[in-house]
Computed example of a mutant assay.
Amino acid sequence: MNDTTTALNPFSLMMEPELVLQTMERSQQLRGLRRHKLRPLDKPLIPYTKEALANRAAYDAAIDAEDLEAQADAYLLN
């Protein structure tokens, strides 16, 4: 198999990581990409209000208060 065919075949590239790196280095499209780091989990995009935090805490408390084992037993017995 010649180099052009190998470079175009993604399955052969998966078997040869060094060839992948060489192909990436030669790629004009990859070199043209703008590079910047995104960190979406560092902070929320929309700040939480006290009301939203209270609502979420109330919802979590309601879920925690439910007797899930009893509900599962009732579901399985019916």
Rank of each mutant, 00 (worst) to 15 (best):
I63P: 04
T4H: 08
L13H: 01
M14R: 14
Q71S: 11
Y48L: 07
R26N: 13
F11H: 05
P10A: 15
E51I: 12
I46F: 13
M1H: 03
Y75Q: 06
H36A: 12
L53V: 12
N2F: 05
M1T: 09
P47W: 01
R56I: 15
H36F: 09
L8G: 07
Q22M: 05
P10Q: 01
E69G: 03
L68G: 06
A61E: 15
T6P: 00
L30S: 09
M14P: 00
D3N: 08
Y48N: 04
L19E: 01
Q71V: 02
L76V: 08
R31N: 15
N78G: 05
L76F: 10
H36M: 10
K43D: 00
L38S: 12
A61W: 02
N55R: 13
L68Q: 10
L8K: 10
Y75I: 11
E18M: 12
L41W: 08
R35D: 09
E51N: 02
Y48V: 04
Q29E: 13
S27K: 01
A57D: 11
L68E: 14
E25T: 08
N2Y: 05
K37Y: 10
R26I: 12
E51H: 04
D67R: 06
E51R: 06
A74G: 03
T4G: 04
A62Y: 03
G32E: 14
T23R: 09
P44N: 04
L30C: 10
T49L: 02
Y75P: 00
M1D: 14
R56T: 09
E16W: 01
K43P: 00
N9L: 01
D60E: 02
E66G: 04
E25Y: 06
L68H: 15
A58T: 00
V20L: 13
P17I: 00
A54C: 01
A58C: 03
L33F: 12
D42L: 03
G32Y: 04
P47H: 07
N78L: 10
L21A: 14
A7G: 03
Q29T: 15
E18N: 12
Y59H: 05
K50C: 14
L8D: 08
Q71L: 11
L38W: 09
D3P: 02
A61R: 08
E69W: 10
M14V: 05
Q22A: 14
G32H: 07
S27F: 07
A62I: 00
E66P: 00
M24Q: 08
L77C: 06
A62F: 03
L41C: 03
L19R: 11
M1Q: 11
A57R: 09
R35N: 07
N9T: 06
S27A: 13
D73Q: 10
T6M: 04
A57K: 06
E18R: 10
D73N: 09
L53C: 05
R35T: 14
A74Y: 01
A65N: 15
Q28F: 07
R34Y: 11
R34K: 12
M15R: 02
K43I: 00
E66M: 10
Q28T: 15
L19Q: 07
L38F: 05
A52G: 09
T6I: 12
L76W: 14
A70I: 01
D64A: 13
L13P: 03
E18A: 14
Y75K: 13
N55K: 11
M1F: 06
Q22K: 15
L77W: 03
R26F: 03
G32R: 09
F11A: 11
A72W: 06
A74P: 08
N2W: 02
Q71H: 07
L38A: 08
